[in-house]
């Protein structure tokens, strides 16, 4: 017996005996068998062993294993539909857990229940600051995009966007109700002082408390340079000097998470109900037959 034989060769020899190799593998192996006597010897040994094992007599069952209803008592066997519903239930439950964990990781434990506000953030501000936050909150993302995008745009943007570099500190004309026109460093500091998870991780236009969509369109129309940055933020363009965390831009808002979680929960409850009903019907039929 050649102990140097690799386990792959051994597997191939064994599969060769059982006719489990492809035609190409058979051809290759037979070519090797012609030139390698050690391989032939191992094949012969495996062949003998296989023959011996196949001589093992088949035993008859010592008794009948047929089943009676009494063996099952009241435990009726469930039909295929029951197992299908059960598998779906398990899968959906796993999805719900995944969604919940993602939610927690995205918004932090304080926001595990979407829509709740971190108390620490609120406590840091007096009433005036909160009022300011209400105004500036939707604009935070715009500001961040502006702050990061402006220098890059000044270098890389096409001719129309050159205006970005020319008027970086000029307050933009923004539509009513829109995060009103705080630009440049002042804007940046105000926004930095009032970070909200929604603003930090939600694309423009998706943050809660955002003004109505038509106003957004209006502001875009009024200011070409804003329009360019907003569009970039909305489209998640990543080429802006690598500073924009665009992965966050794609994360759905907390309300979407809440809808998703509630929807999955309702679906799970419905599946559980379906399982219960199927089970009751099957057990009822089974008991009727037993009588």
């Amino acid at each position: 017996m050649n102990t140097q034989l690799s386990s792959r060769d051994l597997g191939k020899l064994s599969a060769y005996l059982d006719g489990e190799l492809s035609q190409a593998e058979i051809t290759r192996l037979e070519r090797r068998l012609e030139t390698e006597p050690e391989l032939r010897a191992v094949l012969q040994e495996l062949h003998q062993t296989r023959m011996v094992l196949r001589r093992l007599p088949s035993r008859k069952a010592p008794r009948n294993f047929t089943l009676s209803r009494r063996m099952f008592g009241q435990n009726a066997p469930m039909p295929g539909a029951y197992y299908a519903v059960r598998s779906t239930l398990v899968t959906v439950s796993l999805v719900l857990v995944l969604v919940f964990v993602t939610n927690v990781l995205t918004y932090g434990p304080m926001l595990a229940v979407p829509g709740s506000e971190p108390m620490a953030l609120v406590a840091d501000h007096d009433a005036g600051a909160i009022a300011e936050q209400e105004v500036s909150e939707p604009a935070v993302e715009v500001m961040q995009t502006m702050e990061y995008a402006a220098p890059a745009l000044a270098e890389e943007a096409p001719p129309m966007d050159k205006s970005v570099g020319e008027q970086p500190s000029e307050p933009p004309a923004v539509g009513e109700g829109r995060a009103t026109a705080v630009a440049g460093n002042e804007f940046a500091s105000a926004a930095a002082a009032t970070p909200t998870p929604q603003a930090a991780s939600t694309p423009v236009g998706m943050a809660s408390g955002m003004p109505a969509q038509p106003e957004q369109v209006e502001s875009d129309e009024l200011t070409p340079w804003r329009s360019a940055t907003d569009l970039q933020a909305q489209e998640g363009i990543t080429s802006v000097s690598g500073r924009v965390d665009t992965t966050q831009s794609f994360i759905p808002g907390p309300r979407l998470w809440l809808i998703l979680e509630v929807g999955l929960l309702v679906f799970i409850l419905l599946l559980g109900l379906a399982m219960f009903i199927i089970r009751q019907i099957v057990i009822h039929k089974w008991r009727t037959k037993m009588k």
């Binding site: 017996m1 386990s7 051994l10 064994s14 489990e20 495996l46």
Partner: peptide, 10 residues
């Protein structure tokens, strides 16, 4: 399965 069978036979 293939490798276990071969090793078992051996």
């Amino acid at each position: 399965v293939k490798s276990r069978l071969a090793r078992a036979r051996l």
